[in-house]
Design a binder for these strands. Sequence first.
DNA 1: GAGCTTAGGTGTTAGATCTACACTTAAATA
DNA 2: TATTTAAGTGTAGATCTAACACCTAAGCTC
Lengths: 215, 215
Amino acid sequence: MPRPPYCYDYPRPAVTTDICLFTVIDDELRILLIKRGNEPFKGSWALPGGFLSETETLDQCAARELKEETGVGIAHLEPFATFSDPNRDPRARVVTAAYFALTPAGDHDLHSGSDADDARWHPVRRLPKLAFDHRDIIKAGRQALVAKLDREPLALALLPPRFTLTQIQKVYEAVEGQPLDKRNFRRSILSRGWITETGDMERGRQRPAMLYRRS
Amino acid sequence: MPRPPYCYDYPRPAVTTDICLFTVIDDELRILLIKRGNEPFKGSWALPGGFLSETETLDQCAARELKEETGVGIAHLEPFATFSDPNRDPRARVVTAAYFALTPAGDHDLHSGSDADDARWHPVRRLPKLAFDHRDIIKAGRQALVAKLDREPLALALLPPRFTLTQIQKVYEAVEGQPLDKRNFRRSILSRGWITETGDMERGRQRPAMLYRRS
DNA sequence: GAGCTTAGGTGTTAGATCTACACTTAAATA
DNA sequence: TATTTAAGTGTAGATCTAACACCTAAGCTC
């Protein structure tokens, strides 16, 4: 098929994905950031992400980049916005599709990529100096997460396979940033049908708690 | 500043915007489609849209393309998804940012672009043969519209500056595709504070109705 | 093993919101 | 003046929401 010239005359931007990978550690919402080892913004922190390859969708690109960074399967990954200011990257025109991702706290094999010094979980309320427009992206990502948490069982992606009602309540409190009433929360979360009793109890320092799982 | 080679080694997709421009005509939700005059998909209908230029954001690109197609300012325009299947356009790799737009029914100066035969308002429940993945895009756009209509005063973007309660109810019924109870609808819409009485009445064939406007 | 510590687990009430439902009114027209 | 058409209005029952406090089961300490 002939390639109509109008289709190719346009300058093409580079296309990337950037991922806001959230987790809850110490009852606090945190995000994975990578310290940049190269200019521009050398020494600043940045979101994980990378360039779209020729044969993959943006979803696949985000999943691949995330796997390369964290070495784990991610419980939830979805796009929430695009960022396309012509000057957002001083090197070149780069349009990025921003994703948010969720993973349970715990055993991540964080390993720096080729252009990164370090990877760390940063509390979203105390962010360091960020590269590019990544502060804006994180702000939008948090808003998207908060907005969805009430309508979809996203909290399950921030928890291990079996968890107590107190644990899931703490996830909601960490994401929403406010305490919730225990009895009202339990009534509400159980009425949604997202979770089921396992029958097993968690034995800890106090009275045992019922373990729940995804329905 | 030197351009790091990793930044340019990647093949770059073309980037476009596609716009689902909705309106309500004859109590029916309709979408603007353009008949394609060129291959591929010659004779099929397609969403208005076009290529991102070097100096504009995706928002600006969508607004510009829409203005070129319809000749009117648009009351509401926002992105809702991206589509990036590597084979979605048979000519080349094209990633598109999909927008939905809203405009009051009425006097649009629809004019075909260079590669279009015709532009028409199609009822969303009876769509013709569509080019590319535009059927998927429209489906996602409708869902985005329905989801937002309840939370934000989007219906005002589908109405003239002054309107009656019956008119706004018909907009909701057209978008949601189901009839609504008149008294409950009125109580609900008035309690949101989005609209205010003008004090003027609309004179028609029957008892006059109060005209409202955006608060 | 008794007492302390810690988190788990449980109900009710008042207020607000939602849903279903039918008749009267004001103007235009015939 | 009678008819047609859409405008406008209220209530009762059910459901949902928000506020609120005490008892229980286990581990730990002495």
